[in-house]
């Protein structure tokens, strides 16, 4: 009988894994570069320095076109900024508030509780400014793509000259990580686009890894606490499983 249970579990587990496998396959012939992310694995955690650098890359490179509308300035505390620093960062932005006593909307400096302002007023303006393509919001991008972080990293470092056999139309760019290899986003990172205060590498790979790290945090800000509780929960339940099995054996000892 145990064989039956085991076989069933194994086959069901593999059945569950299938859609994921199917998805990876449907990406075509793309092979993603694997990075050694600190947030991967059971004890995964974010690297604050890398996230701060990634935030800088986002601000100086991505934020011109891409919004992050689910992130509030107060969330930057996760990156290791203190309250005063967050206030200073927020104060550099203007957000609309109102109406005031006269019924007028007005602009005021952003406060930590405010969400990060979007570069465009709406999707139509975003399209009009980007050749008709809509730059996606980046708050959840690391979870909204299969193999999120590896994919984002591969995409950012994946700009190349198109092979001679391929004709790339105007306004499109060749990228070896993008499905179909033609992407509307021009290469955003060339290396040395940003000056880091801490002297970390500003190569294409360095900048891409940092901004990916930041985006992963933005998509899954509770990852650290999730894994921390997870380790405790799995430990507790493993003990509980062993104990209940022993207790079952003890109680059933007199049946047969």
């Amino acid at each position: 009988m145990r064989k039956l249970i085991f076989a069933t579990m194994v086959s069901l587990m593999s059945a569950v894994g299938m859609p994921g496998a199917a998805l990876a396959a449907s990406g075509g012939d793309v092979t993603l570069l694997k990075n050694d992310w600190s947030f991967a694995g059971i004890f995964g955690h974010y690297n604050k320095a890398s996230m701060q650098r990634g935030f800088q890359v986002y601000l100086e490179v991505c934020a011109g076109c891409h919004s992050m509308k689910y992130i509030a300035f107060r969330n930057l505390a996760d990156l290791g900024y203190n309250e005063a620093e967050i206030k200073a960062i927020a104060a550099e932005y203007e957000v609309q508030d109102g109406p005031d006593e006269d019924g007028e909307m007005f602009m005021r400096p952003a406060r930590p509780a405010d969400l990060m302002p979007s570069p465009y007023r709406n999707d139509n303006e975003a399209r009009a400014n980007n050749n008709g393509a809509l730059p996606p919001d980046l708050s959840l991008i690391a979870k909204a793509r299969a193999h999120g972080p590896d994919y984002l990293y591969s995409l950012l470092v994946g700009y190349q000259d198109a092979p001679a056999s391929m004709e790339v139309p105007d306004g499109m760019y060749y990228n070896n990580a993008y499905s179909g290899n033609m992407i509307a986003m021009p290469q955003p990172i060339y290396g040395d686009d940003v000056e880091y205060a801490d002297g970390a590498s500003t190569s294409v790979e360095g900048l891409s890894a940092d901004v990916t790290h930041f985006l992963m945090w933005a998509a899954e800000p509770k990852l650290e606490v999730r894994k921390r509780i997870g380790v405790a929960a799995v430990f507790f339940l493993s003990i509980f499983l062993i104990m209940s099995y022993l207790a079952k054996r003890r109680i059933w000892a007199d049946v047969y």
């Binding site: 569950v16 894994g17 859609p19 994921g20 998805l23 059971i42 996606p136 959840l140 979870k143 909204a144 793509r145 299969a146 999120g148 998509a219 999730r226 894994k227 509780i229 997870g230 380790v231 929960a233 799995v234």
Partner: peptide, 14 residues
């Protein structure tokens, strides 16, 4: 705790 989105689909975060 470790594979919360494995049985979901990434597109549902769009």
């Amino acid at each position: 705790f470790f594979f919360p989105n494995a049985m979901g689909h990434p597109d549902n975060y769009i």
